[in-house]
């Protein structure tokens, strides 16, 4: 099988690392060779962040470059637009519609762009955009945006819920498990 590429993008502090760890665990459990690449340090402080998940029979490079991503899972709608050039032709964007103002917008040096999802769609790209924050809060915590998104992403994979739930159990603290399971299902059925 040819290597598949998933990019997880968002704003530092949104929990992208947990999502990539969970996805890596899941894919390894399905017998794939997996590589997950993260960046720590300076860029995590509220900046634009990205992690890469690659899986297949044998994966060499841990990174994804322009035109390579089968899926972009975005925690914030402006970030979905920013990383659009990394999407492969025919690839899919699964994104939260939440807006988080970057510093140039906060200081008034720039405007937060309008109609991001519509313009991505108009560029001929498959985009699955929905309000994850609302669903995460419904599940019990705004922090579960990452799990809501994974729930939505599960639509595109031919795996049963049990495999996803097993990876949830292995990667989130027991006391938050029920909340995260709820978040996953809310995302899945959104």
């Amino acid at each position: 099988m040819e290597t598949k590429n998933i990019m997880i993008v968002g704003v530092g502090g949104q929990g992208t690392l947990v999502a990539s760890k969970l996805l890596g665990h899941l894919l390894l459990s399905q017998g794939y060779d997996v590589k997950v690449s993260e960046v720590h340090g300076m860029s995590q402080r509220g900046g634009s962040v990205v992690t890469y998940v690659r899986y297949g029979d044998k994966v060499y490079s841990p990174v994804i470059d322009k035109g390579e991503a089968d899926y972009i899972v975005s925690f914030e709608i402006l970030e979905a637009a920013r990383w659009l050039p990394y999407l492969k032709e025919g690839g899919t964007i699964v994104t939260n519609t939440q807006q988080i103002d970057p510093m140039p917008v906060i200081t008034g040096a720039a405007q937060y762009p309008e109609g991001l999802a519509e313009k991505i769609k108009a560029a001929g790209v498959k985009i699955d955009a929905f309000d994850c924050l609302k669903l995460a809060e419904e599940a019990g915590t705004a922090k579960a945006v990452n799990i809501v998104l994974l729930g939505r992403l599960s639509h595109y994979f031919d795996l049963d819920d049990e495999a996803w739930m097993a990876s949830l159990e292995a990667n989130v603290p027991a006391k938050f498990l029920e909340m995260n399971k709820k978040a996953f299902l809310l995302g899945k059925n959104a």
Partner: peptide
Amino acid sequence: LPIRPPVMC
């Protein structure tokens, strides 16, 4: 698109 540099928390 506006850039999103890292910022003090």
